[in-house]
């Protein structure tokens, strides 16, 4: 892989190429990461197309059927109300992935901005900004979410926001620590001397260098957000039946695990597969974005 990359670099040496182009090239070489990427893309595409692909309606009940094992009509079986599990899994995936990605995106944007600004400016600004983070950390987040739900009413958008607003704290801390060390590096001084504005320095020199740990943390955040959503739904604060998410399906499946194991196995499989895919992709991305990583 290294040799072929060198060849590739030599081949096009007359054109400048960005880190992103190189990263994409390297990612392409990492089979496990690409597999992860394909799995994620597959899930996302299926989720988007669910209304057209799903064989049944998500609330169509067939009470006569009850909970039935996988069969030719119902590939993944039906739940106790006789609803098609595959359909519910597909609709549930829509919510779970949406919550996972959207809430993580919210936390990512806030966390990176907050952490970068605090670390880059330093001094009093840093102290104040990080104390705010500490205070929010100490706040019992359930009360915070319940309060939000009570005041603004229950909505999916609010759920994204609420979860995102909690998850950014750790992100901000990770980013700030990285930025603190980077800011003292000579290449940042060199960028100042070159005449780059602070914003340009942050964008071109600081952020690409904090991406490694951030990406790893993202791949941990997405699953934890999905589980958080299941927990909130369980408390009656998240998704309400007949709507479903993977988390809701799993917690439902746990209750009837001994009689109808497929109700737990398939949603569990879907979630685990996503988590694995995310982890492989995350590791791959971290290596791809680090020119020094020579591992395949």
């Amino acid at each position: 892989m290294i040799d072929s990359l060198k060849e590739y670099q030599n081949l096009n040496f007359e054109q400048g190429r960005s880190l992103w182009q190189d990263a994409w090239y390297r990612l392409n070489k990492n089979k496990l990461a690409m597999l992860g990427l394909y799995v994620i893309i597959f899930f996302v595409v299926v989720s988007i197309l669910t209304p057209w692909l799903a064989p049944y309606g998500y609330e169509t009940q067939n009470l006569a059927l009850g909970a039935s094992a996988p069969s030719a009509q119902h590939w993944l079986g039906t739940d106790i109300h006789g609803r098609d599990l595959m359909t519910r899994l597909m609709y549930g995936g829509r919510i779970s992935l949406m919550v996972g990605f959207a809430a993580t995106a919210v936390s990512l944007v806030i966390g990176i901005l907050w952490g970068t600004i605090a670390g880059y400016i330093g001094g009093l600004t840093d102290t104040i900004m990080m104390r705010i983070v500490d205070i929010l950390y100490a706040l019992p987040f359930m009360i915070f979410i319940i309060l939000l739900m009570v005041v603004f009413g229950r909505s999916l958008l609010l759920l994204f926001l609420a979860i995102g607003l909690i998850e950014w704290l750790t992100m901000a801390r990770i980013v700030r620590t990285q930025v603190l060390t980077l800011r003292k590096q000579e290449f940042v001084s060199a960028a100042v001397v070159t005449g780059l504005s602070h914003w340009q320095i942050i964008r071109r020199h600081i952020i690409p260098n904090v991406l490694g740990p951030v990406i790893v943390y993202i791949t941990l955040t997405i699953p934890s957000v999905m589980l958080l959503e299941a927990f909130l739904s369980f408390l009656g604060l998240g998704i309400q039946p007949p709507q479903s998410s993977w988390g809701v399906l799993i917690s439902g499946g746990v209750e009837t695990m001994e009689e109808y194991p497929w109700l737990l196995v398939f949603p569990g499989l879907a979630l685990s597969l996503t988590l694995f895919a995310l982890n492989f992709l995350g590791d791959g991305l971290r290596d791809a974005l680090d020119p020094r990583a020579t591992r395949d």
Binding site: R17, D22, E186, F187, A191, V193, R204, P208, N209, P291
Partner: peptide, 23 residues
């Protein structure tokens, strides 16, 4: 800044590790 430039001591720290020479 265009008129005054600087060369730093540590060539390992003074170059952004994620930028090619070209960039």
């Amino acid at each position: 800044r265009k008129d005054i430039q600087m060369i730093f001591q540590d060539p390992y720290a003074s170059l952004n590790p994620r930028m090619t020479v070209f960039n």
